[in-house]
Write a protein that binds this DNA or RNA. Structure first.
Lengths: 339, 339
DNA sequence: GCGCTTTCAGTAAGCGCTTTCAGGGTGCTA
DNA sequence: TAGCACCCTGAAAGCGCTTACTGAAAGCGC
């Protein structure tokens, strides 16, 4: 058995295609016919073919969201915000995970473009590599020309589109200040891949604020690894192997801090007794760690909501819109004052 | 500027529409013309209109996944598995979050049906309410008739479709046995909404195994709340207020156990010193809690992978296929032997 | 060199829907 | 009762693409 089409419905209701279409879309039709069409549609379990509809010029109802990894609580939270707003607007969300592969990211945008999604959201740090950013810009340009909406979270540089930007630099600086206030002077950093703009911003903000206070960040005390829990574990272990000489470790993302906790625990070191730990993002789980993690709280849901809102409303101005959302330092038990 | 169409490409390459289409789809075409078409397409930044393509009968490339809540680590992990397999097969995934609202769930399936997605995955417990399950079955029937593929994770009863079923009942029973072996006799349970089949199965398995060992589960020691972290906090608090008289608390989901930890901490109670805690699922974060959580480990990624695989391969038999995945009890530091 | 098969480009017929346009009732006015 | 406006319904034209089907040219054997 094949699909039930509008024609089947029209025939069953004994009206023309046009009338059936109008009745189903709430256009003016005699109540009598209207009911007959709806009844026929229900009886046949009719579902309009969205492709045909889209092709014929109706508006599309599903937006595309591309993020690095749905499995990461950070993206899950942001996606949650996106979905809430999407649901309020009766939109279907197509969520894609790129696993931080720029090639796959571009492939996804291309697919979304093919689907003629009315809007595309790019969630998550862009790449410092100008080659990729340019390729992405090239992919996006014709889409924008064709009336597509694009909004990004946490991504800037090359892409000239509406953006929601967490204040990574300022947040990291504020955290540095708070940690200095606690008396810390010797720091270590658990860093992600330097080609991510988020990494560059957070590390830069932290380092600069330290410098301003006359505290130098030893390059040897910065360990790079994947921007994940396991990356955090690995980076922390590496630092420990090198002989950690810091009173406080700053993980550039909370997920890395989680890994760091595990690494520290495996060595029998206590937080914050032996070393203080701070993160960035305030993903939900960190307040349930033991000890609860000091971090820079970003309004994760709002990041997603604002991005969706940007994509939903027309940009009437000539310049791209930018929504900056500040982070707030939250001191919890994972950081202790230096004795 | 409007969209670049295949016709534009054909004109630019000075060939017919058919030839352009064939060249772009890798069908046999003289190399010379082939190159000319590809060059023209690249020059014009052409992207085929997926809707037109779908309408014209080409195969669809995006599957729909409906889950309760992307924000929940359980679903994130399962979705991760789905996405990996989807990516391997070059499929785009449309992920939707229903926030456990059955009405929204059906609306999403309807939209996916309209999109003529080649497959629909339902991730997460169904509802005991036969009204909803029947409505869902009615929505799915014509889709299946029309050649759509459906696979579900963790859902059974009414829906007669290919399924991946974690062995909730057996897992809970095995956990009960393990806890009994530790000497526990007085238990409390943090339960989710009883209308979720998952809740019914886990609770049933646990209770039955206890009974078999001659241990009764006091109905007053079962607290119901939302199947979330906050639900766990609330249920645990309620139990504590009632005067907890158990040596071990079983949270029907790890996320609830996380909330329970917080509630216990707020009362100054230690795990497992004052009370042992066990969960179910083994979401990634629980091994990083302090203390690491005893739980029934489900192969979360595999749940998603298997479901995607079921949806991707044809069911040649006459009966629905069922993949049962066992859970494994993992004893960690959150449960201690009774002195 | 003739008639056959084989190859490959082009023509055209939809896929299922929305929407413009035209036509035919109906109710009103004169 | 004739004339004019309206309001609805129905017929038909696409939306952009794939894919038979058609036809021409080229390759082959005799």
């Amino acid at each position: 058995m094949s699909h039930v089409t509008l024609e089947d419905v029209a025939r069953a209701a004994d009206v023309s295609l046009a009338t059936a279409s109008r009745a189903l879309n709430g256009r003016r039709v005699t109540p009598h016919l209207h009911d007959r069409v709806l009844a026929a549609a229900a009886r046949l379990a009719y579902t309009p073919n969205a492709h045909a509809r889209a092709l014929a010029g109706a508006s599309r109802r599903s937006v595309g969201v591309v993020c690095h990894d749905v499995t990461d609580p950070y993206f899950a939270a942001v996606a949650g915000g996106v979905m809430r707003v999407a649901a309020d607007n009766d939109l279907l969300v197509m969520l894609a995970s790129t696993f931080r592969d720029p090639e796959r990211e571009i492939a996804y945008v291309s697919m979304l473009r093919a689907e003629r999604a009315p809007a595309i959201l790019l969630i998550g740090s862009g790449f410092e590599d100008p080659r990729w950013e340019r390729a992405m810009a090239a992919e996006l340009a014709p889409y924008l020309d064709g009336g597509g909406r694009v909004a990004v979270v946490s991504r800037h540089r090359t892409l000239k589109v509406d953006s929601v930007l967490p204040e990574n630099r300022a947040g990291a600086a504020a955290l540095a200040r708070a940690l200095l206030d606690l008396g810390h002077r010797r720091f270590a950093v658990l860093s992600g891949p330097p080609e991510l703009t988020t990494v560059a911003d957070r590390l830069g903000g932290f380092r600069d604020e330290l410098s301003a206070a006359g505290v130098a960040l030893d390059p040897a005390a910065v360990a790079e690894a994947a921007f994940t829990r396991d990356g955090g574990y690995q980076a922390m272990t590496e630092l420990l192997d090198r002989g950690l000489n810091a009173t406080c470790v700053f993980a550039l993302a909370d997920v890395m801090a989680v890994g760091a906790y595990a690494a520290l625990r495996d060595r029998g070191l206590s937080v914050p007794g032996d070393v203080s730990v701070a993160g960035f993002d305030d993903i939900p789980v960190v307040r349930d760690l033991a000890p609860p993690l000091t971090t820079v709280a970003l309004p994760l849901h709002r990041l997603g909501e604002e991005a969706m809102r940007l994509a939903l409303t027309e940009n009437t101005g000539r310049r791209r819109r930018i929504v900056r959302l500040p982070g707030e330092v939250v001191l919890r038990a994972s950081t202790a004052p230096v004795a």
